[in-house]
Amino acid sequence: MLALRVQNLSKTFPLKKPLFGAAAPGVRAVRPTSFDVARGETLGVVGESGCGKSTLARMLVGLLDPTEGSIEIEGHALNTADPSEFGKLIQYVFQDPNSSLNPRKTIRQIMEAPLKHLHKMAKPERDQRIREIFASVNLRESFLDRYPHEFSGGQAQRIGIARALAAQPRIIILDEPVSALDVSVQAQVLNLLADLKAQFGLTYLFITHDLAVVEAVSDRIVVLYFGTVVEVGRAERIFARPRHPYTKLLADCAPVVGRPLTAPEQKGSELPDPLNPPPGCAFAGRCPRTTEICWTTEPELKSMGEDQLAACHQPLED
């Protein structure tokens, strides 16, 4: 059973039309992208800054309208026209826990908003529900009447998760949920997320740039580069046996205890220019395996055996 199906989703940000001449074609933040997420699965999304992972997430929760493509949640097309409907299906946990909480509202007011507006619950019901949720994210009830600035990053992020849970969604998008936290707190939050998923039967889309974190929490991982999916595979295999040279580059660059320091990439390579995208494979400029076809034809996502897919003309072998 599919929780989420994304088909040919893309987003182009238009550029301002110059005073003279025609408008430029715009920046393609997300190029046509398709993937499925099964119910109860955690799909990791990794990529470097500017690869379109946040744009993708914001389209999924209706904060941004896609240019093209469709989003289906449990078989029904996502209708973003009515916020009180899609809010019950899909929720979002923000990267910066402090800026996602209104500084002038108490935690109780923040927690009540989804219950009141999405589920139209009455006051006693809401109190009961908030108590339950706070118990499941290990927060004290005495926190409810305090203001956001009184909390540490880890506590604020748990409040953010509690708010997302309050909407009783089917899917939660986690956009770099632990990258603003200290390592000792980061592990607490990651374990909590795993517990909650089992408890409430949730489906996660976990977006991050930290390969070790995404490997530790995901079932499958999608690697994004320059607004498009370059590789999809099982979490335990994708970094150990990458097919796409970019995935291999990422895995080689991650600092690992016990591995000598190397710069795996030749010096001076830079990301492609989004205003003037190259023809062919976007990674060709940084790739050690390029052949002629890479510079002319954009590679399609192809099966590379054992539920691993990669978009590469010259995939790596085992």
Binding site: G154, Q188, D219
Partner: peptide
């Protein structure tokens, strides 16, 4: 122990209870 390391696969992470 808290820091996940690449290549160890999916698992429950060790934590330090409490806050600094």
């Amino acid at each position: 122990a808290c820091v996940p390391e690449l290549g160890q696969g999916r698992r429950v992470l060790a934590t330090i209870p409490g806050l600094p």
